[in-house]
Amino acid sequence: MARITLDSIRKRYGETMAVDGVSLTVDDGEIVGVLGPSGCGKTTTLRTVAGFETPTAGTVAFDGREVTNVPPEDRNVGLVFQEYALFDNMTVRENVAFGLKMRGIEKTARDERADELLDLLDIGAMADRDPTTLSGGQQQRVGLARALAIEPNVLLLDEPMTGLDAKLKARLREEVGELLSDLDVTGLYVTHDQEEAMLMCDRIAVMKGGRIEQVGTPREIYESPATEFVSEFVALDAPDLPFVRW
């Protein structure tokens, strides 16, 4: 895992400024939530870290090494999407082992590692299944295992829980939250759901219109919002959260 540093990132698409001067540091082993309404630039920020967008200005560094122009396949980042995006032409195990295969790791070793992760995520029994036969929650676990298998510098989660039903969400939130802190994963967690961000993340950056309004622990954000926008956005549906990490 690594420390991720974004320094004054700007991203312009034609006339519109999608990201306008974002600076953010994610410490090694820390999960930072990026919270905001749709269109605030949070997904663009995440894609910049992954390397799918080259910023118009500013730099991205992993552990102090600049990677702004390094293509995504050489950055060693894990990605988890809302839509799972599993490879339907492979079994669950092959999905998880795919990244290791790309790194030239020999078959028995990578299968062993894949099975280990699948067991950890409680879906070891599904290893030989076709991913399309799995439920939504199971598919999301496969997606997570696949991203974790490469021991990424940073794990990027793009609204991973959106689209799952409330009960499943609550369970996954707890389980995944524990797993990520157990594995000491460095993560960037993009979501529009403040409750999710508060539960899963060590710190939260609230974004609006391409800028960061405030960065702080969930408690700081909740108790002393820096701007009107933050207070409104966070207070909406004020969560009654017994196990928030503060």
Partner: peptide, 26 residues
């Protein structure tokens, strides 16, 4: 999403196209 998943896992773009995209569109 498929392309980005595969590439983030370390597959070069040509390899992504041939081993993930094409088999999925068979």
């Amino acid at each position: 999403r498929l392309e980005e998943s595969a590439r983030s896992l370390g597959a070069s773009w040509p390899r992504t196209f041939l081993t993930v995209i094409v088999p999925n569109a068979k």
